[in-house]
């Protein structure tokens, strides 16, 4: 049997990689790719806790499904924003989008 710790360490590693992507990448689409990795890491944790807890309690799987829905909504709106910004400013580099910067 695989101990719970392996799943948690895998999820922590994936989350940290995604965090690096969000903090370091310049391209807005690449930042969203990092966010996807972080959401997947959270989902691994949710499903692992469902399996290693009481399997009759479906909260872990239900929350994983809700995270799927939220991720789909986030990507749809995020990429629409990126395309809209690209059309107006002709750039998708996050640091060049300084319209709101004082």
């Amino acid at each position: 049997m695989i101990p719970l710790s392996w799943y948690l360490i895998l999820a922590a590693g994936l989350f940290s990689i995604g965090l690096f992507g969000v903090l370091a990448r310049r391209n807005a689409v690449a930042i969203l790719l990092g966010v996807e990795l972080m959401l997947n890491a959270v989902n691994i944790n949710l499903v692992a806790f469902w399996r290693y807890g009481d399997v009759a309690q479906m909260a872990g799987q239900v929350f994983a499904i809700i995270v799927f829905a939220v991720a789909a909504a986030e990507v749809a709106v995020g990429l629409a924003l990126v395309i809209s910004v690209y059309r107006r400013r002709n750039t998708v580099v996050a640091e060049e989008l300084d319209l709101l910067k004082w």
Binding site: L19, F20, V22, L23, A24, R25, R26, V29, N90, A94
Partner: peptide, 24 residues
């Protein structure tokens, strides 16, 4: 614009890497 011009990471990437390592 996404074509491979310029750096793919910003100039504070080392701080991001440090943050990710600290989080892990």
């Amino acid at each position: 614009q996404a074509a491979d011009t310029g750096a793919s990471v910003n100039k504070n990437w080392w701080a991001g890497a440090l943050m990710a390592a600290a989080t892990f």
